[in-house]
């Protein structure tokens, strides 16, 4: 018992240290940041398979060492137009908590860590941003849904947008968006 408590404390301390670390990346002209605890790995862009009948922001799926991972074009998701592919474009694999009501379990909620890839224009660096350097998100002005933003981090006098990964890449919401595509498409027939 005691042992495990002590371990918990150690874990918490390292987690705190990690919580202050962010990976910054570029999307168009803007800088965004994601807490490094969410990040699984960063890979080169390529070998994407398109999934039909999906909204544009779902770029497709990739093979990540044997598991099939969906890839989101963050730029489209944030209404900033399609990402322009360049030499520095890469896919950041994130881990997101997903609670999708799943037909296999008669509608029960299944909660699991899910891997999701996002396309970014360039990855910059891992920064440490102290909590005191994080400002709350402005209500408007970022051209982004307020709930996607966890805060604004001050780095060298400029702001980077700290993303709320859980909200911005909410699997359930994206699945719902994906399901709306079909009725629309059917309406063209009828």
């Amino acid at each position: 018992m005691k042992q495990s408590k002590r371990n918990d404390v150690v874990v918490m301390q390292t987690e705190q240290a990690n919580e202050q670390q962010y990976l910054t990346f570029q999307l168009g002209q803007e800088m965004f940041a994601v807490g490094i605890l969410h990040i699984r790995e960063i890979i080169e862009y390529g070998n994407l398979t398109t999934v039909p009948l999906m909204p544009d922001f779902v770029s497709g799926v990739i093979n990540l060492r044997g598991s099939v991972v969906p890839v989101i074009d963050l730029s489209i998701r944030f209404s900033r137009g399609q990402s322009q592919l360049s030499r520095r474009t890469c896919i950041v694999i994130l881990e997101v908590d997903s609670a999708v009501s799943c037909a296999a379990d008669s509608g029960s909620e299944v909660s699991a860590l899910q891997e999701v890839g996002i396309i970014v224009d360039a990855v910059s660096e891992v920064l440490e941003i102290a909590p005191k350097d994080i400002e709350p998100a402005p209500t408007f002005g970022t051209r982004l849904r307020a709930e996607f933003i966890a805060g604004m981090g001050k780095v060298d006098g400029a702001f980077v947008i700290l993303l709320n990964v859980q909200k911005a890449l909410n699997v359930e919401e994206m699945a719902k968006l994906a399901s709306v595509v079909e009725p629309l498409e059917q309406s063209h027939y009828g």
């Binding site: 999934v51 009948l53 999906m54 779902v58 799926v61 099939v68 991972v69 969906p70 997903s98 999708v100 799943c102 037909a103 899910q114 891997e115 999701v116 699997v171 359930e172 994206m174 699945a175 719902k176 994906a178 399901s179 079909e182």
Partner: peptide, 8 residues
């Protein structure tokens, strides 16, 4: 397929 595609 990932949960995102559950409605496809």
């Amino acid at each position: 397929l990932s949960g995102i595609f559950s409605h496809v």
